[in-house]
Design a binder for these strands. Sequence first.
DNA 1: AAATCGTGGTA
DNA 2: TTACCAAGATT
Length: 347
Amino acid sequence: MREPADPGALLDWYDRHARAMPWRVGPATRRAGVRPDPYRIWLSEIMLQQTTVAAVRDYFVKFTTLWPRVTDLAAAEDAEVMAAWAGLGYYARARNLLKCARVVTSEHGGTFPADHATLLTLPGIGPYTAAAISAIAFDAPETVVDGNVERVMARLHDEHTPLPAAKPILTEMARSLTPQERPGDYAQAVMDLGATICTPRKPACGLCPWRPSCAAFVNGTATELPKKSPKKKKPVRLGIVYLARRIDGAWLLETRPDKGLLGGMLGWPGSDWSDAPVEDPPIRAEWKTLDAEARHTFTHFHLRLTVKTALVPMDRAPLRGTFLEPDAFDPEALPTVMRKAYNLART
DNA sequence: AAATCGTGGTA
DNA sequence: TTACCAAGATT
């Protein structure tokens, strides 16, 4: 009979191996009574949704430098925040980030609520993020269940039910392990374990504090867990983007509608993205088609963009979009797919 | 409740 | 080159 997994053993491991992050209060500092700023925990958790720590770091520093408190963020312009988020992806997060900052500022006095239920009512905060903020920022005994926790639990119990069907089972396993002592450090410890030891491909079971309790280690099934339902193949869609440059150097751009793909982001006017995109130039001009196409892969389809360019006179009015003069246009405010098209056009 | 929603790193 | 993967939420 294996010993049951011991939260204390994991906390001991975390005390020695916790990763350093700009938003994290390490275990030693936390023991000294210091709690992290809920604003910074919230911001980091939103950025970390489906996103690696490495990708988040610089964005987190940029955001907290520009907007040190939630009230500062709430007062920012929409376009300013979307531009700062550009490149990080899942842009609904940025739109909900602003909504949430404004609700916290106007309805909660600029202070984040501590309890799970109230956090769940805020825009962009779901079950995981509510638990993470509650546990990490306020040391409430909530259970976080992210991809790391799912993997660790599936292996610990050698659970072969495929995700997402296994989610409730794995959640209950995680809940029954959550300790009353140091729940914030514990939440971060399980995720650190999943990120550095109990990894998807080559888990370092030899270094794992929970190895004596791990059913998958005994059965040799760790690398095949968690099971996942098969994924659909991504279709290829085609599209056309139009990069019009006025003779004073201004570029013709548009802000995309709030709903849908790249919602709220700056981009090049273009066609629909489909099997057979319809030509739809945003201004009358002599369009030239570039030899190379911009290729980009989204979550559920591959995109091949034909890039067309034109040089237009000062007095030519666009059918849609707005000319942004050089000092008003920063290519870094573009989402990556649009920046790829820009890079092709300027070379 | 299955589909939608980005991107960069990695094998 | 392709497919998978990463601290999920929303509709």
